[in-house]
Design a protein around this nucleic acid. Structure first.
Length: 762
DNA sequence: CTTGAAGCGATTTTT
DNA sequence: TCGCTTCAAG
């Protein structure tokens, strides 16, 4: 067995596999067999070193990568590998956290809040501070900040010492909002996404015996995509692995594409500092792509200054030259893509070996249409996910509430959905009443009495009736689900009694939607789950799917063309890859310019290119629908930066001088300037960049860099000729084009273009 | 107070 | 296109 395991590896790969004890850093270029190395290392540990599979923990970044790895581990190591712990960071966090809950007397069957739930809760907090009706931007602002604090393991109490609050927007209330949000979440018996790492780390730190326990249990750790770990992920893995120091991390600094989410590339650059006795292995031979594909990839990535030196090479010398197709419109572009796919398929490429990669999810729509027209099977990954659909979330809110009646987010979602006469005011009162009860009734059974106390709540008759009716059957049903229950019957029952069924059917009939089909799909997914997990209770299902909130994947086979964002494609490979939308503003994306020095978008392109084994195509559209308008686009800067000899350019826009496709009411061709040119933004930013030093402060995605526009900066109090005195909340862009968001006394924020606004300091 | 209709505006990347 | 906010009517 051992011979087999080592046989198909090259020298550095074999080294990385055989050095099972102590820390190992594998710097692996794209396509250099990094997953292969991890998989074989696991097999080697099991079969050669006789390690119990359940002592081995392997961590990946995405669900898709985890699934793929599990499959390959089973292929190489056999069924013995079944009991390996093979998870994403978040599912590992959840797995450990359920156990750790005992240390803080928190129920282990907590609810997991997604971003929407989190935003709702933060909104509630802001209202309770009577800063009511802050708009969406503000809620997003607070939730981003809180998320980034947690990603950096900063508790509400630590906030003032770690962050200079004077320099941040709303610094005066940030700590309070953070604290109240945490309170509300705990009261709801819920954890948010960040908690799956944050709480796990905090509890392991505060209760060393819990960590020692894990150290006894888990002996070998493998981490994929190490370049994309953020501080909390990094800390979690390091705490766990410090027990025996058997940590093998694999990554590629050229593929770091998550710094926007707090990933810290220094985690991989400083591995040798954290683990001084680490062995470093470099994998530089690429087994995936042909020379022409690799040449183009190298040409792109070599333009980045800030990178470790690497030289990828391949033995697959021959290959097709990559090609760029320039089209007149995004509609033509999608047709061209469909045609390329048709070609590839007829030349023998399997549809599942073809991928269309794009920068933003919204690009998928037209491509889908073109593929539908040609009757090409496809599958979209990510985007508006199945579990993100309104009707699915609606019904899930009921299920969540049945499991955990403390869950405020679920309550708010379901209470007047479908409409039952409980409007905004009644909800407000209900929540107040609920919080009062919660002060007194700490246990669940006491708390459930809220259902029968509604009459005393001061609600109007209609609302009180609605609520007591609702709660009567829910209380009933809750008793049912405490016992073992058939998921299919349960969801049927909830649909019926909630009135959701009637409401959804009515909507389908009137608007021609097919929401009911999605409900049926949800039901199928629950049935499938119960069949595969016979002992599972409802909350096991709910927790599981909350980590899959970004999938459309409900277990169907992967047999169509893959459509996904470049981010989603990381770690995957395909025979034929088409990269769509090489237009300025799309790729690189105009909103990335504010944060990115230009290199992350380029790394993103590099990741996209290196997904391809044999065929690589790019497309660009001279006009495309953006933000509701058809707009003229400039070529992506990447096009001019790529050496001409490395690809073929086919300008099909010249053959068809007319603008095909757009007709009817939307006719302002080219009238509107493209919303964002990446280049333009970059230049402005470079010009206006103020020098900040971050010596003693953690850089939380630049929380501390107060933005300036002319003489104004965010945080300033200003007087507007029409609206009076307000505070600058946010500044977008700079120079004359800068847009200033000002927050006025009437609790509304308004946006102005600085150039056209007569502002003075107040 | 609640609801439904009409108008509006805004759209990165993900666990 | 779609989801959200705003507005007027019941």
């Amino acid at each position: 067995m051992a011979a087999d395991i080592l046989a198909n590896l090259n020298e550095p790969q074999r080294e990385a596999v055989k050095k099972t004890e102590g820390p190992v850093l594998v710097l692996a270029g794209a396509g250099s067999g990094k997953t292969r190395t991890i998989v074989h290392r696991i097999a080697y540990l099991i079969h050669e070193k006789n390690i119990f599979p359940n002592r081995i923990v392997a961590v990946t970044f995405t669900n898709k990568a985890a699934g793929e790895m599990r499959q390959r581990v089973l292929e190489v190591a056999g069924d013995a590998a079944m009991s390996c712990i093979l998870k994403t960071y978040h599912s590992l966090g959840l797995y450990l956290l359920r156990e750790l809950c005992g240390y803080i007397s928190f129920p282990r069957d907590f609810t997991i809040w997604d971003d929407t739930d989190q935003n709702g809760a933060i909104n509630g907090v802001l209202e309770s501070l009577s800063r009511d009706k802050l708009n969406k931007t503000h809620i997003k602002y607070f939730s981003q900040k809180i998320g980034s604090f947690k990603d950096n393991l900063i508790s509400p109490e630590q906030l003032p010492e770690k962050i200079n609050l004077d320099e941040i927007e709303f610094g005066d209330i940030l700590q309070e909002v953070y604290h109240l949000y945490e309170q509300k979440k705990m009261d709801s018996r819920a954890m948010d996404f960040s908690d799956l790492l944050y709480q796990t780390v905090k509890i392991m730190e505060n209760f060393p015996e819990s960590l020692a326990n894990f150290h006894r249990r888990y002996h070998y750790f493998l981490v994929d995509e190490y370049q994309d770990t953020n501080h909390s992920q990094y800390t979690m893995i390091n705490l766990l692995a410090k027990g025996r120091n058997n940590l093998c991390v694999v990554g590629d600094d050229d593929q770091a594409i998550y710094t926007w989410r707090g990933a810290n590339i220094n985690n991989i650059l400083d591995f040798n500092r954290d683990f001084p006795d680490a062995m470093t292995v470099k994998l530089e031979e690429n087994y995936r792509s042909t020379q022409p594909v690799l040449d183009l990839a190298n040409d792109v990535i070599n333009q980045n200054k800030n990178r470790m030196d690497k030289a990828l090479w391949t033995q697959i010398r021959d290959g097709q030259k990559p090609a760029l197709y320039i089209l007149n419109s995004d509609i033509d572009e999608s047709k061209q893509i469909a045609a390329q796919i048709e070609n590839a398929i007829s030349s023998g490429v399997a549809p599942s070996e073809i991928a269309v990669l794009y920068r933003v999810n919204s690009q998928s729509r037209l491509i889908e249409e073109a593929l539908l027209q040609k009757k090409i099977k496809y599958r979209v990954y990510g985007g508006v996910s199945f579990f993100g659909r309104k009707e699915v979330k609606d019904i899930l809110a009921y299920l969540r509430f049945l499991v955990n009646p403390f869950d405020e987010a679920a309550l708010l979602r379901l209470v007047n959905n479908p409409p039952r006469g409980i409007g905004e005011k009644s909800v407000e009162r209900l929540v107040e009443f609920r919080n009062e009860v919660m002060q007194k009734e700490r246990t669940l059974s006491d708390f459930l009495r809220i259902f029968s106390l509604i009459e005393d709540s001061g609600l109007n008759k209609k609302a009180a009736d609605g609520i007591s009716q609702l709660f009567t059957w829910m209380k009933d049903m809750r008793e049912k689900i405490m016992r073992k229950v058939d998921f299919a019957l349960l969801i049927e029952d909830v649909l019926e009694r909630s009135g959701l069924k009637a409401a959804i059917e009515e909507e389908d009939r009137l608007l021609g939607t097919s929401r009911m089909e999605n409900i049926t799909e949800l039901k199928n997914s629950m049935i499938f789950f119960q069949r595969t997990h016979p002992d599972a209770v409802l909350n096991d299902y709910l927790q599981e799917i909350s980590l899959f909130s970004n999938t459309n994947d409900l277990g169907e086979p992967d047999d169509g063309v893959c459509l996904m964002t470049v981010h989603n494609a990381k770690g995957l490979e395909f025979d034929t890859v088409i990269i769509a939308g090489l237009d300025d503003g799309i790729f690189p994306h105009y909103l990335a310019a504010e944060r990115d020095d230009g290199e992350e978008e380029r790394r993103l392109l590099y990741v996209a290119i290196t997904r391809a084994r044999r065929q690589l195509f790019f497309t660009r559209a001279k006009r495309r629908m953006m933000q509701g308008f058809v707009q003229t686009t400039n070529p992506s800067v990447f096009i001019s930066q790529i050496n001409e000899t490395l690809w073929e350019k086919n300008d099909y826009s010249l053959n068809q001088p007319g603008f095909v496709g757009y007709s009817g009411s939307r006719n302002n061709y080219g009238e509107k300037k493209a919303p964002g040119s990446y280049l333009q933004k970059q230049n402005e930013i470079i010009k206006n960049k103020t020098k900040n030093s971050f010596n003693n402060v953690i850089d939380l995605n630049n929380v501390n860099s107060a933005q300036k526009a002319g003489e104004f900066r965010s945080g300033d109090r200003v007087r507007h000729p029409n609206f009076g005195v307000g505070k600058i909340f946010k500044i977008e862009g700079s120079g004359d084009a800068a847009k200033v968001h000002i927050f006025f006394g009437d609790n509304k924020s308004r946006k102005f273009i600085l150039k056209y606004t007569r502002l003075e300091k107040a």
